[in-house]
């Protein structure tokens, strides 16, 4: 990521203290979104500890950072699961019943969109158009598009993943 002329507050602690002093509050505030992106890149999500850490780095309250982060769909606050499920709710998928697919998934996994299951196997997200309108309603499982989803094909898909995982777990135990 290009930082231009602004000194990078992510350098070693001694030199950071020095350079922090040279940055005005406004300059630091402009750093919020790029820093959040960097955090999400490293963690895969935005943990609470990182918001508190960023708050002390940038002299901006945790609330302001969290407010900015929750405004954008891009940022997530739960660690991604082993399998990431994205349900498309673009216009075509919405009309095609994407909402119902999402509800079913939510019920089966016991989580709301944006959350991760306690065993961290699945995370669920709603996304806008994925460009597979012809295949509406579409579901992305680990970045693979599954189109024309029905309740039945959805169940089959998840069962298959569960079976594969179980088999893999057994394999690693032996």
């Amino acid at each position: 990521m290009s930082l231009g002329l602004i000194p990078n507050p992510f350098m070693t602690s001694e030199s950071r203290r020095e350079s922090m002093a040279e940055q005005s509050a406004v300059e630091l505030q402009h750093e919020v979104i790029p820093r959040l992106q960097e955090i999400q890149e490293k963690f895969g999500y935005i943990p609470q500890e990182a918001v508190e850490w960023l708050s002390s780095q940038l002299k901006v309250s945790s609330q302001e950072i969290y407010g900015v982060a929750t405004f954008y769909n891009h940022f997530r606050f739960n660690p991604p699961g082993k399998h990431e499920i994205r349900v498309c709710l673009g216009t075509a998928c919405h009309v095609g019943g994407g909402e119902k697919i999402l509800d079913t998934l939510s019920e089966r996994l016991g989580i709301q969109p944006g959350e991760t299951t306690a065993d961290e196997r699945y995370s669920l997200e709603r996304v806008a158009c994925v460009g597979a309108c012809a295949l509406a309603p579409a579901v992305l499982l680990d970045d693979e598009v599954h189109g024309r989803m029905t309740q039945r094909s959805l169940k089959r898909l998840l069962d298959k993943v569960d079976r594969a995982d179980k088999k893999a777990a057994k394999g690693s135990d032996e």
Binding site: Q48, V51, E52, V60, S61, S62, Q63, E64, I65, Y66, G67, T70, F71, F77
Partner: peptide, 20 residues
Amino acid sequence: GTSAITFVKRGHETRVDTSF
């Protein structure tokens, strides 16, 4: 100058809340 609260999320889901 305290910033103990903020708007969280957006659109219909907007709430006044704290960080996490």
